[in-house]
């Protein structure tokens, strides 16, 4: 039984739950109270403590989908496919959060909800690729075929990401890049708040991942039981 699943320990789960809860509370405190206002943008920049970690978690999730896909094709163990699926779902959600927070941030910062800035545009393409990944999974009935095909798509999609980013960046050089994150003058306390947020989001990602994986495993067991009864 052990070989069919990952990280299926309730102690680890509850540890992660408390850790990420503490992290998020600390992160909220750091983002809204501890960190000072930014010089040019004032208070609105604080969405940055949610935007950046969300984008990071999205990227991390898609890396996990990529690794899970490769490992599935090599070992054919279902747990790798479950890992990839779970990570992709979480990644799409955080990718959407990154897009929405980026857009909200963009309104006061650039005076427009959307700009075809390379990072933001790449994030949008990422969202499209992994939304397609999830759709693909729903469109294939047979389990091992679904896992194989999704693994291939997850690999191709991830390999595409740097190329997408490069092409969009070159494409944008025609127009001036309005704004980059590097331009924020980061005070040490801001950096500390950002790091706390990054750690908190990562812990929360791991917690969600474990929950999603065990949900998938329970669903699988239920299916097996149904088969046995029928």
């Amino acid at each position: 039984m052990n070989r069919t699943r990952f990280l299926d320990s309730s102690r680890l789960t509850s540890a992660l739950f408390w850790l990420s809860l503490v992290g998020i509370v600390t992160g909220l405190y750091a983002a809204f109270i501890y960190a000072p206002n930014e010089k040019t943008m004032g208070v609105v920049y604080r969405i940055f403590y949610f935007h950046v970690p969300s984008a990071w978690v999205a990227f991390l999730s898609f890396l996990v989908v990529f690794v899970g896909g490769i490992m599935y094709l090599r070992t054919r163990e279902r747990r790798w496919d479950t890992l990839a699926l779970s990570s992709a779902e979480i990644g799409v959600v955080f990718c959407a959060i990154a897009l929405i927070t980026g857009s909200i941030w963009g309104k006061p910062a650039w005076g427009t909800w959307w700009t075809w800035e390379p990072r933001l545009t790449t994030t949008l393409v990422l969202w499209l690729i992994y939304a397609a990944y999830l759709m693909l999974r729903r469109m294939i009935e047979e389990e091992s075929q679904r896992a194989r095909v999704a693994a291939v798509f997850g690999i191709v999609g991830f390999v595409d990401v740097p190329i997408v980013f490069m092409s969009i960046r070159w494409w944008r050089t025609v127009h001036p890049i309005v704004f980059t994150i590097d331009e924020i003058r980061i005070a040490p306390s801001m950096l500390a708040a950002l790091l706390i947020a990054l750690v908190a989001f990562t812990l929360f990602y791991l917690y969600l991942l474990i929950q999603r994986i065990s949900l998938e495993n329970v669903g699988h067991e239920l299916e097996a039981l149904k088969q046995r009864v029928a």
Partner: peptide, 13 residues
């Protein structure tokens, strides 16, 4: 749906 997002670099270039 699968193809176009991945194809974006080619389209741009």
């Amino acid at each position: 749906i699968l193809f176009f997002p991945v194809l974006i670099p080619i389209v741009i270039a």
